[in-house]
Design a protein around this nucleic acid. Structure first.
Lengths: 192, 192
DNA sequence: TAATTCGCTTGATATAGATCAATTTATTTA
DNA sequence: TAAATAAATTGATCTATATCAAGCGAATTA
């Protein structure tokens, strides 16, 4: 299970054995069953989490009880609530497993310790956050400029690898449309 | 003009005189008239830009020629296209001045140099990017979960300080709704 | 100061997507 | 493997927002 993460690191940066061991020594392995929460609204998020297996989502629930998914993550993706972590305030978000999953957790102090002792790791993290910002900006642009169908086509093209693993209703939620609408859109696409 | 930036730095971090001078020595001051471009679609963005005066916007133009504003910036905000900068590819975005404005530019190499020589500066930058990611995630959430009116109310509440400086049609563009719709929404709010 | 342009409003109508309800199909669970 | 539950489809109707067009007032420009 840790192998997945080690391979990820090896692909991204070069580390000596001491550094590898330092990182490994503070990692916390956690298994999640389908539907199990990793973070529940109201709790304060304390970690940096890396998914080694499975599929997860981050979502908010509005006052009408409707879920709005803002993020999907699979193997080799990070997941968490940086806002809650940064401000140490109760999260407005939920994170749970769409499939049985495995994650590696680092407490924030340990994560910061790694960042300070392993510059390459710190740089990698900053690159990830920076790219993540780009992704989110593009998503904002799509959401204000595209039709429901365009958003869906962009989604399955961009996330072809895991789009098939996610229930349609969840994709609809992520796109900000209703499941019925997505069903009709797919139907319309299929019949041409 | 540089004072605004120096005061910003003083508010955020503690620097000795050498560090301050280092940063100042590589800053490029630039004035922009209303409507003047700082970045035009197709060009590669090369800088890190800080606004010391005025009001600016970042937007994309779709295939129908419609502008979609993804970002507003005023005094003490950073602006740019990190995606183009990072990948050194032509930008899909335009940045221009809504009011006569002044910006401070740092070339990417100089900016990186500052980051490496002044850790406090580097940390500040990472904090900004991290918070910016939060802001964008929240914006995604609003855009998939709120009505046009809710989005507008959130906008003027969140950006009360500069919302008044921005033409209504641009606010509509930022929210992903039509100017006519925003006009009607404001009307409806006013008459109750 | 008249003319022009721009930003905003208002009205009439159209439409994408939502809602509600009933089935059908697929997936879990007993 | 049957029963139960959840996910997806389909139809009818509704509604928020878009579109198109005209008009108005304020700000710029001639």
């Amino acid at each position: 299970m840790y192998d997945t993460f080690q391979e990820y690191l090896d692909r991204k940066i070069q580390l000596n054995n001491d550094e590898k061991e330092l990182i490994r020594s503070v990692s916390i392995l956690k298994k999640l069953r389908k539907k199990q929460y990793l973070l529940q609204e109201g709790d304060v998020w304390k970690y940096h989490a890396f998914i080694t297996r499975g599929c997860m989502r981050t979502y908010a629930v509005d006052d009408k009880g409707v879920e709005h998914i803002i993020y999907f993550g699979i193997e080799n993706w990070w997941i968490g609530d940086r806002e809650s972590l940064l401000s140490q305030t109760p999260s407005r978000l939920n994170i749970d497993a769409i499939e049985d999953s495995e994650v590696i957790l680092f407490t924030d102090p340990n994560f910061e310790m790694i960042c300070s002792k392993v510059p390459a790791f710190r740089d990698m993290v900053h690159t990830i956050i920076s790219k993540s910002l780009n992704v989110n900006q593009n998503r904002v642009l799509s959401s204000i400029s595209k039709t429901a169908e365009e958003k869906y086509l962009e989604f399955i093209q961009k996330y072809a690898d895991f789009a098939v693993r996610i229930p349609q209703a969840m994709i609809a939620s992520y796109l900000g449309i209703k499941p019925e609408t997505l069903s009709r859109i797919r139907n319309a696409i299929a019949r041409r």
